[in-house]
Simulated assay, not measured.
Amino acid sequence: MSLPHPDFALYDNVGRTTEQITAQREARPTADDLHRWAAHDAREFAPSLPTEDAGQSISDWTRHLYRARTAAEVHTVAQEVLGDGHGGLGELHLFLETAAEWCEHNQEPAIAARYRQHAEELSALGDQLAYLGEDHLASTYRHTDRPAPGQPMPAVAMTPAAPTASIRRPAR
Results as ranks from 00 to 15, higher is better:
D53Y: 04
I58N: 00
A99Y: 01
G83L: 11
D60C: 15
Q79N: 12
L122P: 03
G87N: 09
A72V: 03
D60M: 15
T70V: 10
V74R: 04
S57T: 13
E97D: 11
D53V: 03
L122Y: 06
H86Y: 13
G126Q: 14
V77R: 07
R43K: 14
A78E: 02
L125G: 04
D41G: 06
L49F: 06
A42V: 07
A112P: 00
L92I: 12
R63S: 11
D53K: 00
Q117N: 07
R43S: 15
A71T: 14
E108K: 14
A112V: 06
G83N: 07
H93V: 06
T76G: 13
L125S: 12
A54V: 14
E104N: 09
A124F: 02
L92C: 07
E101M: 05
P109T: 05
E120F: 08
R67V: 07
S57D: 14
Q56T: 03
I58T: 08
A42P: 00
A42Q: 01
N106F: 13
F95L: 14
G83C: 12
T51A: 11
R69Y: 09
W61T: 04
H40I: 03
L65V: 06
H93N: 08
E120L: 12
I111G: 01
A78V: 02
Y66L: 13
A99S: 05
R114K: 10
T51Q: 12
H75E: 13
L125C: 09
D53F: 05
W102N: 14
D53Q: 01
L125T: 14
G85M: 11
E44N: 05
A68Q: 03
E120S: 15
L65K: 00
R43M: 15
A112Y: 01
I58G: 00
D53S: 03
L89T: 03
S59C: 05
Q79H: 08
R43H: 15
D60L: 15
L89C: 00
E73M: 05
D84P: 05
H75C: 11
E44K: 06
A54D: 08
H64M: 10
Q117M: 02
G90T: 05
D53R: 02
E80H: 05
L94D: 15
W102K: 12
Y115N: 03
R116Q: 12
Y66P: 03
E97W: 05
S59A: 11
A78T: 01
L49Y: 06
A99F: 05
H40M: 08
Y115V: 01
G126C: 04
H64L: 11
G88D: 02
T98F: 00
E73C: 03
Q56L: 10
W61Q: 10
G83W: 10
T70D: 09
R116G: 04
Y66A: 13
V81E: 09
L94E: 15
N106V: 04
Q56V: 01
L122M: 14
A54L: 14
H64C: 07
Q107V: 04
F45N: 01
E80D: 10
S123R: 11
A110Q: 11
D53W: 06
F95Y: 13
H105N: 14
T98I: 04
N106Q: 09
E104Q: 12
G88E: 02
G87D: 12
A124K: 01
L96I: 03
G88T: 08
